[in-house]
């Protein structure tokens, strides 16, 4: 099971009111390579992992991704909470506002809603961990694009933290891949 801890993984600061930036950052809330995809992907793949190391890493990285999802929602919330409607009207955030008001909603920056087709689980640890390593690199690249697009120092501080986490996750998945491959080889006899 999971227990909610009433704290963020990292103190999310926002220095501006910027609905446009919120509408870009929503990519990591409900986009293909976003935090929701990452969390649900890893937590779904756990059942068919062959080693305790792999079960552990998918559980714990999957859980951390949900904490990142909460941080992204907080960025979006803080970037829009003080915006009057006439400061939203002519921004890309208006499209999301029409349906969801100021509630962060899991769709990507272009408005495409989150779907389980963004992820997979193959009952094949080597295929799954390769997908996970690619996912971490794609998330890192997305964070770099978002950092290029943002000029809010508080937001950039959080985006840089999240980018760094993708690098660490990629590293841990690489070690996990080696562990499950060694396990597979040890089981092979002809």
């Amino acid at each position: 099971m999971w227990i909610y801890e009433k704290k963020l993984e990292y103190p999310v600061r926002v220095d501006s009111c910027n609905p446009t930036l919120a509408s870009l950052i929503i990519e990591q809330f409900g986009g293909a390579d976003g935090e929701l995809s990452a969390g649900i992907r890893y937590l779904t793949q756990r059942w068919t992992m062959p080693t305790n190391e792999a079960k552990g890493i998918l559980t714990d990285i999957g859980t951390e991704e949900l904490a990142h999802w909460e941080m992204i929602g907080t960025l979006v919330y803080k970037l829009t909470k003080n915006a009057p409607v006439d400061k939203i009207k002519d921004t890309p955030f208006a499209a999301s506002y029409a349906n969801h008001g100021k509630s962060p909603f899991p769709h990507n920056a272009a408005g495409v809603p989150w779907t389980a087709t963004f992820i997979n689980s193959k009952d094949d640890p080597v295929a799954d961990i390769h997908e996970d390593m690619a996912a971490e690199q794609k998330a890192r690249a997305t964070y770099e694009h978002l950092i290029n697009l943002s000029d809010d120092p508080g937001v950039n501080d959080t985006l840089r933290f999240l980018r760094e986490r993708e690098v660490v996750h990629y590293q841990r998945f690489g070690e996990t891949l080696r562990i499950v491959e060694e396990y597979k080889d040890s089981k092979k006899y002809y």
Binding site: E53, G56, D60, H169
Partner: peptide
């Protein structure tokens, strides 16, 4: 935690 998962 993450480090120990792969280096127990």
């Amino acid at each position: 935690n993450l480090y120990l998962d792969t280096h127990p």
